[in-house]
Amino acid sequence: MRVFDTERQEWAGSRRERLFHPDQYLDVRRQKVVRQKTAIVLAVAGLAFGVWALAWKDEPEPYQNFTAARSDTKKDSSDGSGGGSESGGGGGTPSAEPSSSLPAGYEPWQDDEGFRVALPTGWERDSRSSQFGIDVVDYRSPDGIRRLQVFQVMETSPYESLQVAQVEAQKLDGYEAVSLAEVPGDGNQAAEHEYRADEIAGEQGGGGARHVIDHRFTAADGERYALVAYGSDADGPDDERELVDTALRWFCPPGTQCETPEG
């Protein structure tokens, strides 16, 4: 039976119809309350979704390997070859005028890896990624016979690092140890491994025994580094000794301010 609803000014349905559609038969005031509550619920839900979406957008990117990322960046900024570079070009620049504390023919060099070193003028530079710390940097003489290598070591002491390195060096053909010992210094730990070998992987200049001085030390930044000099054994050990000693005296680790060595 349908009746006329005087408040809504329309015909209302039967009681059964009211049970199935109760919201249609609420009075005007109650309908307003329902609408207000519905609007509040929708507003809160919208705000929550907005906060979630914003937080998701700002989530950090996945972790990237630092060494690999840095290597890729350097390749992109180079001439596109991704290889080494010559002294005076990419890879670093002379850091100062020649000093009286430098042997004749040497110059200080500020490398792109952040460290300072001194080496003979005109040597070529190349580098490759390392599993730890800075890239492995090689400076090589124009004839390819002599080389200075610089890298960072992960062992807890220079002597321990050399003990690990000696295990591999003993596998070289004609390996002959000259010395392996800790080196007294200015309070920082240092150790040195000097040896000869008939042939060393990656060396140029033909046959003949090679002479190597591998000096590892704790630098001013508290990190441990290696300076390794390679050369021919036929001309004696003096040129490798001068190469290591000069590089060590001028070495300044990345992110560190160091004074210019005095003569």
Rank of each mutant, 00 (worst) to 15 (best):
V3M: 09
E7W: 12
E7F: 12
Q9I: 08
Q9F: 08
E10M: 13
E10Q: 15
W11C: 06
W11N: 12
G13P: 05
S14G: 04
R15E: 10
E17R: 15
E17Q: 15
L19M: 08
H21E: 09
H21K: 11
H21Y: 14
P22A: 01
Q24H: 10
Y25L: 02
L26R: 04
Q31P: 03
R35G: 11
Q36W: 09
K37G: 13
T38M: 09
A39R: 15
I40Y: 14
I40C: 05
G46L: 03
F49P: 06
F49L: 15
G50N: 14
A55M: 15
A55S: 13
D58L: 15
E61N: 07
N65V: 12
A69I: 06
A69G: 11
K74D: 10
D76F: 12
S78F: 07
S78E: 11
D79Q: 01
D79G: 01
G80L: 09
G84M: 01
S85N: 09
S87K: 05
G91R: 00
G92H: 02
T93C: 05
P94V: 05
S95V: 12
A96S: 06
E97V: 12
P98N: 10
P98H: 04
S99G: 15
S99W: 11
L102W: 10
P103N: 11
A104G: 07
G105A: 04
Y106F: 15
W109T: 02
Q110C: 04
E113K: 01
F115I: 00
R116K: 09
A118D: 04
L119D: 08
W123D: 00
R125V: 06
D126K: 00
R128M: 09
S130W: 11
F132R: 02
D135E: 15
D135W: 06
D135A: 04
R140K: 11
S141K: 00
Q149M: 11
F151C: 02
F151T: 10
Q152F: 08
S157F: 10
S157R: 04
P158A: 07
Y159T: 10
E160K: 08
S161W: 12
L162M: 03
V164R: 07
V164Q: 10
Q166W: 11
Q170F: 08
K171V: 02
K171H: 10
D173R: 00
Y175A: 02
Y175M: 05
V178R: 09
A181M: 09
A181L: 12
A181K: 11
E182D: 13
G185N: 09
D186V: 02
Q189M: 08
E192C: 01
E192S: 06
H193D: 08
H193K: 13
Y195R: 00
R196Y: 13
D198V: 03
E199K: 04
A201D: 13
G202C: 02
G205H: 08
G205T: 04
G206E: 13
G207P: 01
G208K: 00
A209I: 05
R210M: 01
R210S: 00
I213Y: 07
R224W: 13
R224C: 06
Y225Q: 05
L227D: 03
L227P: 00
A229P: 01
Y230V: 02
A234Y: 12
P237F: 12
P237S: 06
R241Q: 06
E242D: 11
L243H: 07
V244L: 05
V244Q: 03
A247W: 12
R249A: 05
C252K: 02
T256C: 01
T256G: 08
Q257G: 09
Q257F: 15
C258M: 03
T260S: 03
P261D: 10
E262Q: 11
E262A: 07
E262C: 05
